[in-house]
Write a protein that binds this DNA or RNA. Structure first.
Length: 472
RNA sequence: GGCGGGUUGGCGGAGAGGUUACGCACCGGAUUGCAAAUCCGUGAAGACCGGUUCGAUUCCGGUACCCGCCUCCA
C-alpha cells in the first residue's frame, strides 16, 4: 500500500500517515461561515483538501474515508444580515431569516465549489444542528475544571491547560506581552476565550444551563468533530490563519474534555492566497469571489489547476498570467486525452501526491505522460487530481458561462470554417475567420477529425445578434 | 513587541549534498495554403555574508528584504 507522508504543523515535520483505522480514515476541515459568496481565498483549502480526500480514497478505498467539513451558521455577520432584513420590514422571524440566509449561502457555496471539481465531503454538518453537543462539551469542561461561568458567559481557562500554545508555538505569557488581547473584567486571564455567550432578544439564542445564549466560535468544531469522527481522528485541516487562535482553542477544548482521545493526529495548514502580494481577506477588502471569476469566463478547472500548480504550503499569488498558463496546460491535456479510456493513475503521480501532496511534482509527471503519449494513464492521473472529470474542451475550458444559443452558434461557425478548409476554399475560409475575429470569435484549426477539425473560442465580449448579422 | 513562514533562471514553480525538474516566454531548426498549433533543439537559477564538506542552491549560523498570525478571516 502507498505510504502517505504529510507535513504536520504541530510537530513541524513530515510524518507518515498511519490511520487509526485504515477501514475508516477520518479528516476534519474547517469550512466557511455562511453569510456571503465564497471568495477565492476560501477556495484554496477546498481544493487542497479535496485533492487529499481523493488521494485517500484512492489509497484506502472510496468507502473507507470520512471527510467532514462544517458550515458555520452561528455568526454575528449572519445575524447582522438578518437584522438588516428585519429592519427593512421583512415579516419573517429572525430565526427564519437567518436560516434562509444560511440556506441560500450554502447553495451558492456548493455551486461554486462544484465548479472547481471538488467532491462533496462525506458530511457537512451545520453548527446550529449541534448546539446540544456543544452545551454538553462545555458542561464537561466546567466539570473538569477547565472552564468557568462569569457574567452569563462561559470561558475557557487557558491556564488550566499547560500545553496551550503548542500548536502555534507561542506561550501565554508571550502573547500577553504582545498586548493585543481583548481585556474583559470577567476573564481570569486575558487569553481566556468564550465558550458560550448570552444573547439578547434581538439575537438568536438557545436555552442552556447558563441562560439563553449562543456558542463561541471555536466550540463548534470540537463538538462536531467529536460527534462525527470521535475523540481522536487522523487529519485536521484548514488555512494557516486559523492556526491561532481557532485551532489552538479547538485543541484545548477537545483535549481537556476528552484527554484520553488525543484529538487530531496530524494538523495540516494551507498557506494564503494573495492578490497583488497581499493576503486576500475580508478586512482588507481586496477580495473577489469564485463566482466573479466563473462569470468572467475563467473556468473552474482553470482555477483548480492554477491552485494545484503551487504547493499548498506556499503562499500563492493569483494572477491573470497564472490563469492563462493553467488554461494552456489544460488544453494540451484535454487534446492529449481525446478519446482515451481512463486506466490507472500513474505511480509517479501517486508518489508525488503521497509526498505531502506535491501537486507541482504531480503536474510534472502529467507532462511526462503527455509527451510519452500515455493517454489512459494521463487521463486517470488527471482525474485523480480532480481534473477532466467533466466533458473537456469547450464546456470546461471557456464556454461554460455562455448561453446555449451562443455556444451553438460558435459551433456552427467552427463547423462551417472546417468545411470550407476541407473543400480547400481557402479564400472563403480566411474571410470567415477574419469576420469571426471582428465579432470576438477566434477560429482555430485543430487536429480533431483527421486534421479537418476547427474550434471557436470566445475572445472577450460577444454580441450574438451582431455576430449573426456579420456571419450569416 | 512576540511567534511562524518565505527569498530558485525573463516569469511561474519542485525535488535532491555531487548527475536535465517541469511549465510558460525567448532564441534556432522542422513542419504548415495563411493564422494558430505541433515536433526537435540551445541558452538561462537558487537574496547576501560566513561555516561544515573533497564538493552546497540543498546542512548550520548571521544579515537584509517580503509575507502571515497575535482582531472576523481559508
Amino acid at each position: 500500500m502507498t505510504t502517505i507522508r504529510l507535513h504536520d504543523s504541530r510537530s513541524r515535520r513530515k510524518v507518515e500517515l498511519a490511520p487509526l483505522d485504515p477501514a475508516n480514515v477520518r479528516m476534519y476541515v474547517c469550512g466557511p461561515t455562511v453569510y456571503d459568496r465564497a471568495h477565492l481565498g476560501n477556495a484554496r483549502p477546498v481544493v487542497v483538501f479535496d485533492t487529499l480526500f481523493r488521494l485517500l480514497r484512492h489509497v484506502y478505498g472510496a468507502d473507507h474515508v470520512t471527510y467532514v467539513r462544517n458550515f458555520t451558521d452561528v455568526d454575528d455577520k449572519i445575524n447582522a444580515a438578518a437584522q438588516a432584513l428585519k429592519a427593512a420590514g421583512d415579516p419573517r422571524s429572525l430565526e427564519a431569516l437567518i436560516a434562509a440566509r444560511s440556506d441560500e449561502t450554502i447553495g451558492w457555496y456548493h455551486e461554486d465549489m462544484d465548479a472547481l471539481g471538488a467532491l462533496r465531503p462525506t458530511q457537512e454538518p451545520r453548527a446550529t444542528a449541534f448546539i446540544a453537543p456543544m452545551i454538553a462539551m462545555i458542561e464537561r469542561l466546567i466539570a473538569r475544571g477547565h472552564a468557568y461561568v462569569a457574567e452569563g458567559h462561559v470561558l475557557f481557562d487557558v491556564r488550566s491547560y499547560p500545553a496551550y500554545g503548542a500548536l502555534s508555538g507561542r506561550s501565554i505569557d508571550d502573547m500577553i506581552a504582545g498586548a493585543r488581547v481583548e481585556v474583559a473584567p470577567y476573564k481570569r486571564d486575558p487569553m481566556d476565550f468564550v465558550l458560550w455567550k448570552p444573547s439578547g432578544a434581538d439575537l438568536p439564542g438557545w436555552d442552556s444551563p447558563w441562560g439563553r445564549g449562543r456558542p463561541g466560535w471555536h466550540i463548534e468544531c470540537s463538538a462536531m468533530s467529536h460527534e462525527l469522527l470521535g475523540a481522536s481522528f487522523d487529519i485536521h485541516g484548514g488555512g494557516i490563519d486559523l492556526q491561532f487562535p481557532h485551532h489552538e482553542n479547538e485543541i484545548a477544548q477537545s483535549c481537556c474534555a476528552y484527554p484520553e482521545g488525543g484529538f487530531a493526529r496530524i494538523w495540516m495548514h494551507n498557506e494564503m492566497l494573495l492578490v497583488e502580494g497581499r493576503k486576500m481577506s475580508k478586512s482588507l477588502g481586496n477580495f473577489f469571489t469564485v463566482r466573479d471569476l466563473l462569470d468572467r469566463g475563467v473556468p473552474g478547472e482553470v482555477i483548480r489547476f492554477a491552485f494545484l500548480s503551487t504547493h499548498y504550503s506556499k503562499p500563492m499569488d493569483w494572477t491573470a498570467e497564472k490563469a492563462a498558463q493553467a488554461r494552456t496546460s489544460l488544453i494540451e491535456f484535454a487534446e492529449a486525452t481525446t478519446g482515451a479510456e481512463a486506466g490507472d493513475p500513474h505511480p509517479d503521480v501517486i508518489a508525488a501526491l503521497a509526498d505531502d501532496l506535491n501537486t507541482p511534482g504531480a503536474i510534472k509527471v502529467l507532462h511526462d505522460l503527455r509527451k510519452a503519449d500515455a493517454k489512459s494513464d494521463l487521463l486517470a492521473s488527471l482525474r485523480l487530481l480532480g481534473l477532466m472529470n467533466v466533458k473537456t474542451s469547450a464546456d470546461s475550458l471557456g464556454w461554460g458561462p455562455r448561453t446555449r444559443e451562443e455556444h451553438d452558434f460558435a459551433l456552427l461557425i467552427a463547423r462551417r470554417y472546417a468545411d470550407l478548409r476541407a473543400g480547400k476554399d481557402y479564400a472563403a475560409a480566411d474571410d470567415l475567420r477574419d469576420r469571426a475575429a471582428s465579432v470576438g470569435l477566434h477560429l482555430v484549426v485543430t487536429k480533431a477529425m483527421g486534421g479537418q477539425g476547427a474550434t471557436a473560442e470566445f475572445a472577450g465580449p460577444f454580441d450574438l445578434a451582431a455576430a449573426r448579422e456579420a456571419l450569416e
